[in-house]
C-alpha cells in the first residue's frame, strides 16, 4: 500500500519542504520597520516610532475608535468599536509593508522603514 504511493508521498514531502524553506527565507529577509503610519480615509493622521511602547486611541466619527498598542517593536489593535472585530483578531505587525486594517473605521496602520515623507524626485535643482 505505502509502496504503491511512495512516489506521491515523496513528491508531497518535497513540495512541503521547498515551501517551508521559501517561507523561512522570505520571513528572514523581511525588513523590520521603524515607524507605523496611521491613515484614516486615505489621509495620514499620525506616525509613531515602533521602538517606543505606547497605547493610543484613534478616534473615528460618532464615538467610534480603534486602540493601537505598540509594544516590543510590534503593533496591534487591542480594542475597537467596529462590529466585525477583524482588526483586533489580526496578528501583530512589525515588518515593512505589513498592515492592520479596519474597514468600518476606514483606518490603516502600516509599517514603514524610513521616515516619511519619501521624495521621488526634486524640482528646481539644475
Amino acid at each position: 500500500m505505502i509502496r504503491k504511493y511512495k512516489k506521491d508521498i515523496i513528491f508531497i514531502v518535497a513540495i512541503l519542504g521547498v515551501a517551508l524553506l521559501l517561507f523561512i527565507v522570505f520571513q528572514l529577509t523581511k525588513k523590520p520597520g521603524k515607524y507605523v503610519v496611521i491613515t484614516q480615509n486615505g489621509k495620514e493622521i499620525a506616525k509613531y516610532e515602533l521602538n517606543e511602547d505606547r497605547q493610543v486611541s484613534i478616534p473615528y466619527q460618532e464615538g467610534k475608535y480603534n486602540v493601537l498598542v505598540i509594544r516590543d517593536q510590534k503593533a496591534y489593535i487591542s480594542t475597537a468599536t467596529c462590529p466585525d472585530q477583524l482588526c483586533v483578531k489580526q496578528r501583530s505587525i512589525s515588518k515593512v509593508n505589513e498592515t492592520l486594517v479596519c474597514l468600518p473605521n476606514k483606518m490603516v496602520v502600516k509599517v514603514i522603514g524610513d521616515e516619511p515623507p519619501h521624495v521621488d524626485i526634486m524640482s528646481g535643482k539644475s
Partner: peptide, 22 residues
C-alpha cells in the same frame, strides 16, 4: 529635465509621485 519634472501615472504601489521642491 534639469529639475523640470514631468510625472506619468501612479507608482506601482498605487501611490502618487512625491516631488520635492528645492
Amino acid at each position: 529635465a534639469g529639475g523640470n519634472i514631468r510625472v506619468l501615472g501612479l507608482k506601482p504601489d498605487g501611490s502618487q509621485w512625491n516631488v520635492g521642491i528645492q
